[in-house]
Design a protein around this nucleic acid. Structure first.
Lengths: 214, 214
DNA sequence: TCTGACACCTT
DNA sequence: GAAGGTGTCAG
């Protein structure tokens, strides 16, 4: 049986300073609920709205950065990327992957754990707390989980930026923001021409509603 | 009984020159198939793709501009708007509305018809051809028919521009193009901060796929 | 995919 | 105030 799991894209990437260069550390990530709510995406306003209370909590998991443990010097020299971290909504996952509910909001946290505090670190155990452990989180990295993208701009973003999605890219098409789209709408430029014009490349055709009789 | 039909929005608007000011003319529009294909919208690439052959043709209809007939002078003095033209997918329509298939591509055409050539013009009769009749079409006005919008940018465009959709407008939210969205994505700006930042207003949260085991 | 009741708005 | 043009959303 194939295990299908998604990485986060874009991955969280951090740079650390202030470590003791000669001390050994583990670096880990966990992902915690932002609130107690379930969300739905409201298409017409392009916004996430509360749709009820959160589903019951799932076993918390920890992603241990694969370079762990390493010296402070090593950690500080590199950009630390969490691109191998995988998400699943399978509550029965026994591979130590991070389990989340769909349609909930989450916050990733980065943990820096001095080696002596982290030697029994495990994907399925709580992260230790105490003097040798520090957690960092950035509100701008809050995200909402989905099983299908709700927002086409996000789809485009993933396609444009994720090397694994290269196959879905257009050559220069569909890269337009709203302003360019408005600009391109021929109907707004009243004119009468007897010449025929080429299609403007990359501009989605207008769509018009049809409506049957009531 | 209320008859529900959709207008095209934005409406086609044209300006005409070169008419005989003292001659009377009819102005009309029809909408013809661009090709023999049916389309589907491919979400991941934001593109329309051929999905098979066109449905069988529907009775062609003609929209006669309500100011018709009028003198060349009158027509040339105004912007001629086709905003009252209505579309339906009801093949049994007997109100003379323009009948189209959903998920097909169409091209509107403007016809300028000298009065003596157009006196038996009717929504349900073919447009006469001959020396006193001229047709104009603009490839940039090709459109695809839908019964529900496929592309969120088009929805936003209609909401932003159509006075009748004012009720769906947000005050300043959701007006971002792709560039601003990319700019806002914190994951691309590797950093480690111990401060917490406020949410950037108006920026949709990241979404991440979850994937269950197959 | 398509429909129809709906709230909200313009005309 | 009435008629009618919007996208919405649940089915």
């Amino acid at each position: 049986m194939i295990v299908l799991l998604k990485r986060m894209f874009p991955a969280m990437r951090v740079k650390i300073s202030g470590l003791d260069p000669h001390q050994q550390y583990y670096i880990a990530m966990d992902i915690v609920p932002v609130d107690n709510k379930r969300y739905r995406y409201v298409y017409h306003s392009s916004k996430w709205m509360v749709a009820g209370n959160a589903d019951s909590p799932v076993p918390p998991r920890v992603y241990i950065h694969p370079d762990s443990p390493a010296s402070g010097e090593t950690w500080m020299r590199q950009v630390i990327s969490f691109d191998k971290l995988k998400l699943t909504n399978n509550e029965l996952d026994d591979q130590g992957h991070i389990i989340l509910h769909s349609m909930h909001k989450y916050q990733p946290r980065v943990h820096v754990i001095r080696k002596d505090c982290g030697d029994d670190l495990s994907p399925v155990k709580p992260i230790p707390s105490g003097e040798g452990v520090k957690a960092f989180s950035f509100p701008e990295t809050v995200f909402t989980t989905v099983t299908a993208y709700q927002n086409q701009q996000i789809t485009r973003l993933k396609i444009d930026r994720n090397p694994f999605a290269k196959g879905f890219r257009d050559s220069g098409r569909n890269r337009m923001g709203l302003e360019a789209l408005v600009e391109s709408y021929a109907f707004w430029r009243p004119s009468l021409r007897t010449l025929t014009f080429e299609d403007i490349p990359g501009i989605p055709k207008q769509e018009h509603y049809l409506y049957p009789r009531a």
